[in-house]
Simulated scan of single mutants.
Amino acid sequence: MRLRKKHWARPEMEASHIVITDQYNHMGKWNENFENNNEIHLELGCGMGGHIAQRSRQNPNINYVGIDLKDEVLVNALRKVKKLRAEEKLQDKDINVRLMPLNIMLIDNVFAKDEISKIYINFCNPWPKERHNKRRLTHTKFLEQYKKFLKLGGEVWFKTDDTGLFEDSINYFKESGFEINFLTYNLHYSGFENNVVTEYEAKFTSMGMKTMFLVAKLVVSD
């Protein structure tokens, strides 16, 4: 669905310390931006922000960075983070979330080696046509990029409702030096206790959708 342009979105985001618009000026210095030495988790395609907002509230001693392409989406993530954290009466700079408008294909030189401890990929575009497979966020092409900044022993948590993408991704991870530590074709009946339900997940689970999920650990780094 084509998003209607919201001309007010970028000014609202630029007014908040939570949103990073100088994406390439923090490589190797993300802990300085958060003003602490806590580990950093990255969500690729954070969408409307429900997942990252909940994670950040549950884990105040972890820093979170969320990336999405469209201002029209990211401004809603900003509002959701601020609303969910409002009762804590924190200033924007003290909330353990940073949001960044960025095409994930351009993620090189945003993070330094070993700067990220965990990556979340939730319900990304499955790109089912073979000629488009390299656009998948779990494709080996992207995984090799992530390995430049994901710590050895770091994890990728991946959720999807697309069986083809899920099964191909299992192979992508194995080919790229990851070990599959957890895998299920029906997350909500798997006994896995640390799931945070996304907006998309809640909607389509109510319609009978099954969520597939895996945890891949980086065991071979270049």
Rank of each mutant, 00 (worst) to 15 (best):
N37C: 09
E201P: 05
K70E: 12
N36I: 11
S176I: 01
V219N: 06
M1W: 09
E72G: 06
A216T: 06
F204W: 14
L152D: 09
V110F: 07
A216S: 11
Q54E: 15
G208Y: 05
I180M: 10
R55A: 11
L74P: 11
T160G: 04
Q91E: 13
F166E: 03
E155W: 02
L214G: 04
V65G: 05
V19A: 00
E12N: 10
E12Q: 15
E201R: 05
K113M: 07
V81H: 08
E193K: 14
Q58W: 05
A15I: 01
H132D: 13
G191C: 08
I170Y: 12
N37V: 07
T21D: 08
T211M: 00
K93S: 13
S221F: 07
T205R: 15
P126E: 01
F213Y: 14
A202S: 14
C124T: 15
L106I: 00
Y64I: 02
E167G: 07
V220R: 12
M212P: 01
L69W: 12
M27C: 15
K83Y: 10
L183D: 08
M212Y: 08
F166P: 02
G208C: 04
I121R: 05
F173T: 03
A112Q: 06
L44W: 00
E175Q: 15
E199T: 05
V215L: 08
R131V: 12
K151A: 13
Y24V: 04
E32F: 07
E88S: 08
F192V: 03
F123R: 03
T140G: 09
K141R: 14
C124G: 15
T163M: 10
D108S: 14
K148R: 08
R131F: 09
D108Q: 12
E39A: 10
P101V: 14
L187S: 03
K80F: 05
R55M: 14
F111I: 00
D22C: 07
E87K: 02
D22E: 13
Y172R: 09
E12R: 15
I104G: 05
H26N: 14
K217W: 00
I119G: 02
N194Y: 08
F173P: 03
P11G: 00
V196C: 10
N25H: 12
E88K: 13
E43G: 01
V219I: 15
R85I: 02
H132L: 06
T205L: 11
T198Q: 10
E167T: 12
Y189R: 10
L69D: 04
E12M: 11
R131T: 12
K217Y: 04
C124P: 14
K210E: 15
D161Q: 00
W30T: 08
Y200F: 11
I170Q: 15
R136L: 00
H132N: 10
L150M: 06
M1R: 13
T21S: 09
R10D: 09
M207S: 11
K147P: 00
E14Q: 15
L152N: 14
N33E: 12
M48P: 05
H17P: 06
K148D: 03
K148Q: 11
D222L: 09
E199R: 06
S16L: 00
Q91V: 07
K82L: 02
N76T: 11
V220A: 11
A112L: 00
C46W: 02
G66M: 02
